[in-house]
């Protein structure tokens, strides 16, 4: 089986994030593989070990993303591909990334393309579905289980808390939801071996694309952190006094009633 994973390098939302003039301070941030993409990588490795074949992890980014690709190789992926967009004048958006990936996959043979359900940075969940549309193949999002039988897949997907079972024909794009698996740590021998695994860097020219072809359709106007939570207020007294006061506050102060 030819399994591909589309992966995003993103800042760790569990670490401190600073924003200066609408730009995230990359110096202070910690970067990781998007956690949902980590599920996708784990699942790809498990499926490869079961059915044979190869796992290729593809990312769109700059040279810095090589570290996350190497981490994926250390987990057990067979090869990495970096689509380098460092030279793009404008900030890429989901359209840009999907176009680049679609161009990359045009002449590839693939049975399964896995990705994360969303990235934890912008939470858009756009790239994988767009890619499936561009490639004209099936897509199943937020999957929590996948079994491959020959040329079809039996998939369980998370439907807002319910489970939906889907049968779909390969080739297929599927995006991982939490619960799909427990990603492994890259082992030390894995890290040492990752050094010797192929990691290819390609750019727009290699994909026969011009900058206009992938120009972003959206523009980020501003970024800001959510307002800090203010301290709560305790209402005292018996239940009746409390209810009266609360209703009063909601009416007069918060003006929501």
């Amino acid at each position: 089986m030819n399994i591909y994973v589309v992966m995003k390098r993103t800042f760790d939302t569990e670490e401190k994030i600073e924003i200066n003039n609408g730009v995230i301070d990359e110096e202070g941030a910690e970067f990781i593989i998007n956690p949902y993409d980590e599920y996708a990588i784990e699942e790809a490795i498990v499926l490869r070990d079961e059915h044979g074949g190869e796992v290729t992890v593809v990312t769109v980014g700059d040279e810095e993303a090589e570290k996350e690709l190497r981490t994926a190789l250390a987990m057990g992926a067979d090869q990495g591909v970096l689509i380098d967009v460092e030279d793009l004048d404008e900030e890429p958006d989901h359209f840009t990334i999907a176009e680049l990936l679609a161009a990359y996959f045009k002449d590839k043979e693939y049975d399964l393309i896995l990705g994360g359900n969303v990235a934890v940075d912008d939470g858009a969940g756009q790239v994988a579905p767009r890619l499936a549309e561009k490639l004209g193949i099936n897509q199943v999002t937020t999957i929590t289980d996948i079994k491959i039988n020959g040329t079809s897949a039996t998939i369980e997907r998370d439907d807002e808390g319910d489970v939906e079972t889907v049968e779909a024909q390969l080739p297929l794009v599927a995006t991982a939801q939490q619960g799909l698996n427990e990603p492994r740590y890259p082992s030390l021998p894995g890290i040492m071996k990752a050094k010797k695994k192929p990691l290819e860097t390609i750019d727009l020219d290699d994909l026969d694309l011009d900058e206009e072809d992938v120009a972003a359709k959206t523009r980020t106007v501003d970024r800001y952190l959510p307002p800090e939570k203010e301290a709560g207020r305790m209402i005292e007294g018996g239940p009746e006094t409390q209810v009266d006061e609360l209703v009063g506050l909601l009416k007069n102060e918060a003006k929501v009633l």
Binding site: E66, K67, T71, Y185, P186, I191, A194
Partner: peptide, 14 residues
């Protein structure tokens, strides 16, 4: 090096 950084990250996570 990249390997040293990856080992540090992995051990830190673990």
């Amino acid at each position: 090096t990249k390997e040293q950084q990856m080992i540090k990250d992995m051990v830190k996570d673990f």
